[in-house]
């Protein structure tokens, strides 16, 4: 059996860490797009759509991410879709992210006062114009800090993908542990790497929060 140096462990974890970053980015971007679409249709106000989006949000907020991934990974083959762990993880995390982001952004849109809607309506703007020129620019400023803050949850959420066999940081940690029998060292390194990804994001979110506080424009 070959010896693993600390460098070997870190090097292999770094390789796997790229997948954690990629999965986080993909889930965040796709989740953001889906979340924005849900936000738009929800704000437009058809009662059935509002109910559907609310149910969607409740479903994903009210169940563990692990269960969501299991259901995607084991459920899709039942309807004839054989998906790789990568696709299942991306799909599951996208749904999860979109549900949370749409809810965060809903609060931001609602914080833009009724007067802004009425003023823009009385100037003849339609819904799309109101959203584009009046509501979203204001909501966005409020939304940036909590959105960046939530990205930390997405990064940590990717660890769950290890359970369905996707080799990202946590799964790589488990595999290396099985080879080295040094769980403390390996998982210690894993934790440090998550921290190195997440801590700057947290700092950035806090910085933005200070920057956007009480700034209307």
């Amino acid at each position: 059996m070959s010896e693993f140096s600390l460098w070997d462990i870190v090097y292999n974890l770094l390789l796997a860490g790229r997948w954690t970053v990629l999965l986080s980015l993909t889930a965040f971007v796709l989740g953001g797009i889906v979340g924005l679409l849900l936000l738009m249709v929800r704000t437009a106000g058809n009662p059935w759509v509002v109910r559907f989006v609310r149910g969607y949000v409740e479903l994903f907020q009210g169940t563990p991410l692990l269960m969501q991934l299991f259901i995607v990974f084991f459920g899709l083959p039942l309807i004839g879709l054989d998906v790789s762990p990568w696709v299942a993880a991306t799909f599951g995390l996208t749904l999860f992210t979109s549900a949370f982001l749409t809810e965060i952004w809903r609060g931001c849109v609602e914080s833009v006062g009724k007067g802004q809607w009425e003023a823009s309506a009385s100037l003849g703007m339609n819904f799309t114009q109101q959203m584009r020129y009046i509501v979203l620019p204001q909501a966005l400023r409020i939304a940036i800090p909590p959105t960046v803050g939530f990205s930390v949850q997405v990064v940590k959420g990717t660890a769950v993908a290890s359970i369905i066999g996707f080799v990202e940081l946590t799964k790589a940690g488990t595999m290396i542990t099985n080879a080295t029998y040094a769980p403390f060292t390996v998982y210690g390194c894993v934790a440090v790497m998550y921290f190195l990804i997440c801590y700057p994001l947290s700092l950035f979110a806090r910085h933005l929060e200070g920057k956007f506080r009480n700034v209307a424009r």
């Binding site: 007067g115 009425e118 003023a119 309506a121 009385s122 003849g124 620019p137 204001q138 209307a216 424009r217």
Partner: peptide
Amino acid sequence: LLALRLQVGMVFQQFNLFPHY
């Protein structure tokens, strides 16, 4: 409604200016 609002302007008690412009 949109056509109507081109004919009828409105000024509000709370001004309702767009703060980001």
